[in-house]
Amino acid sequence: MRIGNVATAVAAASICAALLSGCGGDSGDEDKPFEGQSTDDIAAKAVEATRQAKSVHMKGDTRLEDGSTVTIDVSVDQEKNCQGTIGAGGTRADVRHTDATLYLRGDEQYWQTALKQQPDAARKLTPKLRDKWVKMPANDASTAGVCDKQGFIAALDEDESERRGMQRGSTTEVNGAQALELTKDASGGEKLTLYVATEGEPYILKTTTEGGKNPGSITFGEYGETVAPEQPPAGETVDMKELAGEQRT
């Protein structure tokens, strides 16, 4: 469960200029919770329970290799309804996805950073974009990021071998809920930790990566709660596709 695996997806969603263009066994442990279950089974069940959840709130950050930090604070459901904030490189933006449409609202710094590879577009578009809800193109790749719950979980669990062979740790508390700690020393000096809920569904409550190229942590909570973002008011919305077309004329 490597946090770094989702950094690219989160960064793509937050810097939306791009949008324009124990080894497995451990089954002898008879202590509760998860009595008699191997760590491999516990981790697999945690991933599946999280994947099947109707909705989840995710909050955390990941450091990229260039030293910048990607942040996420988003609630999302199985239908890709989502709302919250995302950020990268010191900038942040509000995000909503509703009625199959993605909206982003960032300040001037956000759009200048997002459009830094297109200086002419940045100069012309930033005044029209800042502090507005920007309706993104329907085929924008960033919708496959944080507003795609299943895609996000798949990215988090991209290499299933990383959650195999974890060691059973102690029971601790994550945001008021009891969790079993599973840990593993991975390549590159990384330490991976998975926190699994011990009561009710075995949801993932937190995952961390310490050391290595992409240290970070994400907490998961508010499982099953309704995510109902409102469509931004028309007077506060601009259409990126229309603006991009105007710049080409």
Rank of each mutant, 00 (worst) to 15 (best):
G89F: 10
E181R: 14
E246L: 04
I72H: 01
V174F: 12
G89S: 15
F220H: 10
P215D: 10
D159T: 13
A18I: 07
G216I: 11
E236C: 06
A93D: 02
K213A: 15
A53Q: 05
I42R: 03
G212K: 05
A244P: 01
K45R: 10
Y223D: 13
L20W: 05
C16P: 01
T207L: 12
T143A: 14
V196F: 12
A18G: 13
D140V: 14
G245N: 14
G200V: 06
Q247K: 08
P229Q: 12
R123H: 12
A122P: 00
R164F: 01
A46T: 07
R163H: 11
T209P: 03
L194N: 00
G245H: 12
D157Q: 06
R105H: 13
Q112C: 10
S161K: 12
S38P: 00
D94I: 02
G235R: 15
Y203E: 06
A141M: 11
G106Y: 01
S187N: 10
S21R: 07
S75E: 00
T39K: 03
R164D: 00
E225A: 09
N81Q: 13
T8P: 00
G169S: 06
Y195C: 00
G189H: 09
N214I: 00
L64C: 08
L125H: 10
G106D: 00
I218R: 07
L64S: 08
V70T: 11
K132W: 09
A186F: 04
G106R: 01
N139L: 11
T143H: 07
R163N: 09
T62N: 11
K32W: 04
D185K: 15
K191G: 05
D77S: 12
G165F: 01
I86H: 04
D26E: 05
A234H: 06
I72E: 00
V146Y: 01
P232G: 11
D185L: 12
K54W: 04
M1G: 01
E225I: 02
E225M: 09
R63S: 01
I204H: 04
Y110R: 07
E173T: 13
E236W: 07
Q52I: 10
P137L: 04
D40W: 01
L19T: 06
T183W: 05
D99F: 10
A18H: 08
A93L: 07
A154G: 05
Q247V: 08
R51G: 01
P233F: 13
A197R: 15
